[in-house]
Amino acid sequence: MSDLITTPNIVDADDFYAELLTAHEGLSDAESNALNARLLLTLANHIGDRAVLSDALNVAIKAGRS
């Protein structure tokens, strides 16, 4: 694993989660998807580190497998 943080790291996680939901309020599915995509790209740029990004992608892929 790279330096991807997989332990809790967001201060006041409940508050962040609520902000995320609020941002999507009143949006159509298409608008929400677009917002998520813009957010994803913004965060990815902030991280920058290619290995961290790949590991994050893999975490997301793995968690979606049932």
Binding site: A34, A37, R38, L41, T42
Partner: peptide
């Protein structure tokens, strides 16, 4: 298309999106 359009929307005001 969703991701492509997200890049383009961001690119107007955010330099970071332009290389994409």
């Amino acid at each position: 298309r969703l991701l492509r359009d997200a890049v383009l929307d961001l690119s107007e005001e955010n330099e970071f999106a332009r290389p994409l």
